[in-house]
Nucleic acid binder design. Structure first.
Length: 108
DNA sequence: TCAGTGACTGACC
DNA sequence: GGGTCAGCCACTG
């Protein structure tokens, strides 16, 4: 893994997501210059399991759906982590998603 | 090198 | 308003 790779940039952004806030794959992809690489961001999250400093649970799809929860241990670990930070989850979806949304394009 | 895959998204029925 | 389809880009075998 190169320190200048696309993955690394994704991690840099994800690591800066404030506690209790969330963002989307598309937002990160957009921040990195290519808004059409959202799937690659998801791929990066898949590889982020090795990096404890990357809060992958704070990254969801554009409607706040926890599409990646199956990649975590157990069936509701991702939800637990988010609720522990003050983010309410209902039916695998973030409640008041817009309220918790954190846009790297505006905050960085 | 080529084809398959995916934690996505936007456009269309 | 909900389900489908087709691009999208990086990684793997």
């Amino acid at each position: 893994m190169d320190n200048n790779s696309f993955f690394y940039k994704v991690y840099e952004v994800v690591k800066k997501i404030p506690t209790g806030r969330v963002t989307s794959y598309g937002a990160i992809a957009q921040y990195l210059g290519s808004g059409k690489s959202a799937r690659v961001v998801g791929w990066a999250m898949n590889a982020a399991h090795n990096l404890p400093e990357v809060p992958a649970h704070r990254v969801v799809n554009r409607v706040g759906l926890l599409t990646g929860k199956h990649h975590f241990q157990g069936t509701n670990l991702m939800q637990q982590l988010l609720e522990n930070e003050g983010v309410l989850i209902e039916a695998n979806k973030i409640v008041h998603f817009k309220k918790h949304f954190w846009d790297p394009n505006e905050s960085l």
